[in-house]
Design a binder for these strands. Sequence first.
DNA 1: TACGTGGCGGTAT
DNA 2: AATACCGCCACGT
Length: 117
Amino acid sequence: MAEQFTKQVYDYVAKIPAGKVMTYGSIAKALGRPMAARSVGNILKRNPNPFYKAKSNSLKAKRQAAVPCHRVVRADLTLGGYSGGANTKRNLLQREGVKMDGNRVARQSVHNPLSRI
DNA sequence: TACGTGGCGGTAT
DNA sequence: AATACCGCCACGT
């Protein structure tokens, strides 16, 4: 179960569409471990194949090759951490069409509308 | 809104 | 086996 969690996290993150983001906590919750938000962050930090390190330059190839961990942000919609640097994270998101609201992700760009309202 | 604080769980050493 | 490490979060100022 436990090491499946790592795989589940990668699989789940891989399904977040470009232009949208999810939070660490909502991913943990979606995987049945509502209190494991920190673990999700920990797992993504150690992601062996982060998006910004993907071999190919092409966005399309990167989408298939890498875990797009930059699409995961904090519950307050600030960016949170990123091994490649916060600036890289923001650039990648904006390039994908994620809307920003100051230093936060705009609510409209959050995937899974159920969690709000 | 912004900050501090305590607690949390999976992985790594 | 035990403990440290964190890309976090809810909650209270």
